[in-house]
């Protein structure tokens, strides 16, 4: 690691005032610290927002579940509010990495990082959530813009993610057996505004599958999407699997996610 200054602000406004120049935010550090160790980043200062009380916590009510940016994966997995309103979201959190990663990693860090194989982006897009920052609100469909890219400005801080409660939802991933990151993960939700199908792990960034959404809109049943395949063009290929393999997995995981949702 290169040298840096460390700061631990106690409020959001204090954190925002420190975030200038080459300073970077740290929430759980489960992505940032490995990045710093490899000297892939050289921040002047690390602003640790992990202890800011106003950024953490879960509340449910009025048809939505709100999760503070620095809420740990383990807290989401264990939350009675999340399990009650959106069990698929609790299950997704429970499947991230391992217990030690879940004890430190946060939802805000996960979506700000937008790793192509991360789990949360599938839920954020699949449920049509809204990302709140210290400057504005961003709809899920506009938040994830490319591989490790989001709509966030350099000095913008995610404060919470608000998930509308769906009628039904399911998440299925084929985990990489070593890291548990998603080779392919599919989040399917039946919502007031129609069915949403969001895929992570397969492409450079999370994407929706319109053809599956309209088929499931007519008949929310796994067999409704039996014949629908996605093109392998532009999908990820690496030592773990080819683009064609991932394209195939999208169909399999989508059908299992629908079955998981009770369809």
């Amino acid at each position: 690691m290169y040298e840096f200054d460390y700061q631990r602000p106690s409020s959001l406004s204090e954190a925002a005032s420190m975030l200038s120049g080459e300073a970077t935010l740290m929430a759980g550090g489960q992505t940032l610290i490995p990045t710093l160790k490899q000297r892939l980043a050289m921040p002047s200062a690390v602003i640790d927002i992990g202890g800011i009380a106003e950024l953490s916590g879960i509340s449910a009510g009025g048809g939505s579940v709100s999760i503070g940016a620095t809420t740990r994966h383990a807290a989401v997995a264990d939350s009675a509010d999340v399990k009650g309103a959106i069990p698929a979201l609790a299950k997704l959190a429970e499947g991230i990495g391992d217990p030690q990663v879940r004890n430190m990693g946060t939802i805000g860090g996960s979506i700000a990082n937008n790793d192509p194989a991360a789990d949360y982006p599938a839920a954020v897009v699949g449920l049509g959530a809204t990302v709140h920052t210290n400057k504005r609100e961003i709809a899920a469909d506009n938040f994830f813009t490319g591989m490790f890219e989001t709509a966030l400005a350099e000095d913008e801080i995610v404060t919470k993610v608000v998930f509308p409660v769906p009628e039904k939802a399911g998440y299925m991933k084929f985990p990489n057996p070593a890291s548990r990151y998603a080779m392919v993960g599919v989040f399917v939700a039946q919502t007031g505004g129609g069915v949403r199908v969001a895929v992570t792990g397969a492409g450079p960034s999370v994407f929706r599958v319109a053809e599956m959404e309209s088929a499931l809109g007519g008949n929310f049943w796994a067999s409704a999407i039996e014949g629908i395949s996605v093109s392998a063009d532009g999908l990820n290929a690496d030592i773990h699997g080819s683009a064609a393999y991932r394209a195939h997995l999208v169909g399999v995981m989508a059908r299992r996610a629908v079955a998981e949702a009770g369809g």
Partner: peptide, 15 residues
Amino acid sequence: GRSVKSCTMLAMQAA
């Protein structure tokens, strides 16, 4: 009280 990987946490985070 929570298990963490101490190679992936700064000492200052644990202050």
